[in-house]
Design a protein around this nucleic acid. Sequence first.
DNA 1: CCAAAAGTGTTGGTTTTACACCCATGG
DNA 2: CCATGGGTGTAAAACCAACACTTTTGG
Lengths: 219, 219
Amino acid sequence: MRVAVDAVVFTIMHDELRILLIKRKYEPFQGKYALPGGFVHADEELEHACQRELEEETNVQQIFLKQFGAYGGVKRDPRGRILSVAYFALIRPEQKLIASFDATEPRWHSVYDLPELGFDHSKIIADALRQLRYELQTTNIAFQILPERFTLRELQQVYELVLDKKLDKRNFRKRIKELRILEETAEHKMEGAHRPAQLYRFCTPAHQNIRKKVNVFLQ
Amino acid sequence: MRVAVDAVVFTIMHDELRILLIKRKYEPFQGKYALPGGFVHADEELEHACQRELEEETNVQQIFLKQFGAYGGVKRDPRGRILSVAYFALIRPEQKLIASFDATEPRWHSVYDLPELGFDHSKIIADALRQLRYELQTTNIAFQILPERFTLRELQQVYELVLDKKLDKRNFRKRIKELRILEETAEHKMEGAHRPAQLYRFCTPAHQNIRKKVNVFLQ
DNA sequence: CCAAAAGTGTTGGTTTTACACCCATGG
DNA sequence: CCATGGGTGTAAAACCAACACTTTTGG
């Protein structure tokens, strides 16, 4: 049985939760959209394969991937039996997308307005979104999508857009502060004609890739 | 790459949470304990393979399995690259265990006193236990381990032994009753020299295999 | 001075925890 | 009559949800 990996990469862009999809250049599902992914090489760790395929097909690099399921249905791929291990990530939107030889049009698509997808990728995305929402409320993954310094409003927007739910500003700030995982920086973010916002950073030095139970579980 | 499945089967026996292990008759890890499992056949669904291997190696049949992870480390199996998809289940302890040709001594082992295990099965078990505890608190899997009719004390014991934590009797009963997923039966369980206990059953007819969010999240 | 986002506490309602006694039975 | 587990309610504490005004800035 061949083993592949698929990546469900989320970001926030223009106030929307979006997913990175490619357009398939060849059969099967030629011309259809699909998740970036591909076959695992011999002697290659699964997560590495996922990073590699993602970079090859979209140019997105250096992200923290979390495995959330394996999809092994007998008929899921018309080429034969292919098991796919699925990973998700939440990343900053600034990386430049570059198409590859066999995957064109790497693009961000709104989670709530996806095109028709090949394989069982709709199901994989639905599972990934459920997992993302759970982890957002129990770990610090939100910080993967934010710049090193960020305002509380930016943090709240991540929660609101991922959970697809408005949150109360005062309650949100109270709870985040109680967690004691943020520290104020000396700077403020000045933009627009209004009071500048305090910039915060994540306390623990490894604000990447180390997940901490935070139990936000907001409203 | 070859694809296998492994089953982490939990039960409760003699007031202990236990796991079903087999002893390996051949290399690799000959003589060591391991999870029941084996290779997926061509054109066989993963879950079916897991059921089949479990039956072949231990005689345990007809259980509800839930996938919780894929283990694909390059070096995890000395025979070569083997990816294993792991499933867990919580079952009633009464099925008779029967050894197979290549797996001897199918036996229940206390989760807190496991023998030395082959492969990366210690890690798989640790992950399964975490998942079991989570699902016990958010779904109705507890009912898979209970007989059709059961007392509230029996239900509470499942929670206590899986979560490894004492629960308050009155609070437990209050919360379970509020969920409105149980109905009283006409019978009482008479055993021992004390007041007979009301027997309950799970309301919805499909008290197997259908998971319902119950949000117990006890204490 | 106006618009826009930043920042800040309190209150009422709900949920959770802690806790102790009487009941029904068998031996 | 004694030992054993079955069964029940209440009060205090903790937590959560709802809510509005003042501040700082740029234009």
